[in-house]
């Protein structure tokens, strides 16, 4: 489980804290939604949980390990993170290479990389665009690609910052089903930052309101 313990974070000196003494628990095997008003610190929380930002006070534990001593590479082995803006995590020259990037870093063989890449391209309906540059895709396609690239890594936890933003109804449903399967079959802990009540009601087991 991921345990957030009395987190406090302030962006600028002498400013009011964005997050103040926040504590929460995110279990494996279920989807937890994080919701709240605009500007309440949901994205900040996600960045604190993934070590991109460092809290002023408090700590984050992943399966009992404090992340304060870990680098992003080590945290990335435990949590797959999807940014709110997919442009901020797409950097490879083709769609297929974007998915293969993480698989290659995991040390998979060329055959495994190729088959896994094809599987995710099919799953996220990106096979027709496998040679396209990621930045030339539509917003929805970029969102799907970012999801595919992170899901392919198979981290025990997934943190998705507003993943349904650019998705149509069908893709949203497919994503929900895929996340549910990940949580139930692979005991993955999924955390979804979302405003969409419908998505939360349908797919999330618990809700953290900020």
């Amino acid at each position: 489980m991921i345990e957030v313990n009395k987190l406090t974070f302030t962006y600028a000196k002498n400013a009011l804290p964005v997050i103040k003494e926040l504590s929460a628990i995110f279990n494996r095997g279920e989807i937890t939604a994080v919701t709240g008003k605009n500007g309440c610190g949901k994205t900040t929380l996600s960045k604190l949980m993934t070590g991109i930002l460092h809290p002023d006070c408090g700590s984050v534990f992943i399966d009992g390990e404090d992340i304060s001593g870990m680098n992003l590479f080590a945290i990335g082995q435990r949590i797959g993170y999807i940014w709110q803006n997919p442009n901020r995590q797409l950097f490879c020259p083709t769609v297929a290479e974007e998915i293969a990037f993480g698989l290659r870093n995991k040390g998979l063989s060329d055959v495994e990389i190729s088959s896994e890449t094809d599987r995710y391209l099919q799953m996220f309906r990106l096979a027709a665009k496998k040679s396209a540059h990621p930045l030339l895709l539509s917003l929805g396609e970029k969102q799907r690609l970012a999801l595919a690239a992170v899901l392919s890594l198979g981290a025990p936890y997934l943190l998705l910052d507003e993943p349904t933003g650019g998705l149509d109804v069908r893709c949203r449903r497919l994503l929900g089903v895929e996340l549910q399967q990940l949580a139930e079959r692979q005991n993955c802990g999924v955390i979804v930052i979302s405003h969409e009540d419908d998505f939360i009601r349908r797919f999330c087991a618990r809700k953290v309101v900020m």
Binding site: F73, Y81, F101, N105
Partner: peptide, 18 residues
Amino acid sequence: DEAVSIYSAMQMRGYNIK
């Protein structure tokens, strides 16, 4: 900010920069 995000994303997807 964008450069930092991409750099973080690369590391989180298993690229050990060190």
